[in-house]
């Protein structure tokens, strides 16, 4: 699972560089997210603009990441494509997550491929 990261003083944006978060990739996604978020205590925003499909296993993995981050660091989501938005809406997970229409354009941070 290819993820990379843009960091600002108070926000870490994790960009998913894959088109799918599905049953074949859900465990890998959870593991990579745990690695990336372990180094700091910044807010975490997940950029889903490249993700065109998510299934219930992928959704479960996103929920698991949110729970692992804890209540003081709620996972934020950004730039949901129509299929991803549909799955979040039908499972009512759209009411649980903070969802941003887009990713902040100028974060002033440095992008590191990880």
């Amino acid at each position: 699972m290819e993820l990379d990261c843009t960091q600002t003083p108070d926000l870490m944006i994790i960009h998913v560089r894959e088109t799918r978060i599905d049953a074949a990739g859900a465990i890998d996604f959870k593991d990579r997210m745990r690695e990336l978020t372990a180094f700091n205590t910044l807010r975490v925003m997940l950029d889903l603009s490249k993700v065109t499909f998510i299934d219930s296993s992928g959704l479960g993995a996103v929920v698991a990441v949110r729970k692992a981050l804890g209540p003081d660091r709620p996972l934020e989501l950004a730039a949901l494509t129509p299929a991803v938005e549909k799955v979040f809406r039908l499972t009512r997970m759209d009411s649980v997550f903070i969802i941003h229409p887009g990713v902040p354009a100028h974060t002033g941070g440095q992008r590191d491929a990880i």
């Binding site: 299934d55 219930s56 296993s57 959704l59 479960g60 993995a61 929920v63 698991a64 949110r66 729970k67 209540p71 709620p74 799955v87 039908l90 499972t91 009512r92 009411s95 649980v96």
Partner: peptide, 24 residues
């Protein structure tokens, strides 16, 4: 059937599949 949405600690990580199939 989707369970009522609980607090953050108890959020379900599964059980969505048949709900999606039946809805769509």
């Amino acid at each position: 059937v989707l369970a009522p949405m609980p607090s953050n600690d108890d959020l379900p990580e599964g059980g969505f599949g048949w709900h999606l199939i039946r809805t769509l």
